[in-house]
Nucleic acid binder design. Sequence first.
RNA 1: GGCGCGGUAGCCAAGUGGUAAGGCAAGGGUCUGCAAAACCCUUAUUCGUCGGUUCGAUUCCGACCCGCGCCUCCA
Length: 466
Amino acid sequence: MALRFYNTLSQQVEEFAPARDNTVRMYSCGPTVYDYAHIGNFRTFAFLDILRRWLRASGFGLDHVMNITDVDDKIIRNAVAQHKSLSDYTAVYTQAFLDDCRTLRLEPPEHLVPATRHVDDMVAAIEKLSSGGHTYTSEGSVYFRIASFPGYGKLSHNDFSGIRAGARVDMDEYDKADARDFALWKAPKEGEPAWPASIGPGRPGWHIECSVMAIRYLGATLDIHAGGVDLIFPHHENEIAQSESLTGQPFARFWLHAEFLMVEGQKMSKSLGNYYTLRDLLAKGTAPEAIRYLLVSVPYRKALNFTMEGLKSAATAIDRLRNFKLRLETDKLPEGLNQPLAGRTAAAAHQFRGGMDDDLNTAEALAAVFEYVREANIALDAGEFRAANAPAALDLLAQFDAVFDVLKPSVQGAALTDEQIEARVAERTAAKKARDFARADQIRQTLLDQGVILEDTKSGVRWKRK
RNA sequence: GGCGCGGUAGCCAAGUGGUAAGGCAAGGGUCUGCAAAACCCUUAUUCGUCGGUUCGAUUCCGACCCGCGCCUCCA
């Protein structure tokens, strides 16, 4: 079955392929760098990472643009309060975002672009919109007139036909002709930073950066535009209005949106004390892989309940996979090929791909892997797992890990070298042979304290780092 | 009120018009000098509630209840 995604625009699952030359042109909304990103943000970014990796695994090339919003009201407010320049202020959180992404093994997009790098392009776009009759100016700010765009509401499936400019009563309060109109360019208030421009000094509104940068790097029509559900309205709706008014072309063919994340069954909020940044979780000693696993194990279109129990569960599940991989690599396997098992391996790989192809159904894909692991472990225990079965099994794990990327442990601080560990293991084996179990156990415990786990198996001692 | 998503075992969660994947947790067992790892068994006659269609519905239709999101720039 071919790759297919749920498209917010059509509200249907549709078969996906890029429009031209096998390269997927995609855009996703990045962070606003006014603070550390929280775990809810990373649910969406982790989804984007899975999306990227699966598109590549499906044989497509990638051209992905993500913006970094480094100018907006909150940033200005905070920077002014701290007597810092915008760029000094945002540099800290931009770097923090990059570090966090690396920790969670999120691939960088092909283009990661700060909005402030394209202010000139935004001004040019606003001028073009103005000459097309899509804007008006009020007290130095430029607004987009949604009445000039007939398709407004097609993404969020809202019907705005009943809302007419004449019905407005609070015009003096909003300075807008219609409450739904939005700012393209904001005139500066006293003490606020501003860019000089033909349309008057000011700064870009939030929505214009995405339209301008997407079109500039990827062309008029994107294959995929993705983000969190809360961006559907008004942000993405406004992007469509701007972009399509600008180019006359459909802005994006597929719109994908990740659902919300909750913490311990409640919405995340600072007042409830369940508002976590990645740093908060790492400080509690959580492995980054467990966080990554938990974030992507629930299919992206389903709300995710992020819990401490879930984090533990994720870590244990990863261990199960790692242990299986270690067994494949270290057990002495009898020669030959177990034909039925080889069939099962192929079937598991097929089911894995089928799950991912089905709108990134990660739960289904994971089930395929785990079911296979159990069957393979049984065969391993029974001595029926043959040497020639191992490559396909390892390949299945590689396919899994190319997307989920959780098998390799994050490196912890200084540890014993392999040689030191081997020497201690040999010492313990000698003690065991002499039936000095107290000494053997003491060595095992010492190694455990240093993060090395020993396991006695039929084919000798196996060790692994915690 | 409008738009959208969802309610499946203790927790997370897949799924189909034909009789409930997978992970974690819990209890029991096998293996082991003891562990660890692994495996086996047990844990939903039942899929929010009530009706309807059907030979048969968790899966289709209707109503209702509950949770969540968006509808003032929040992933």
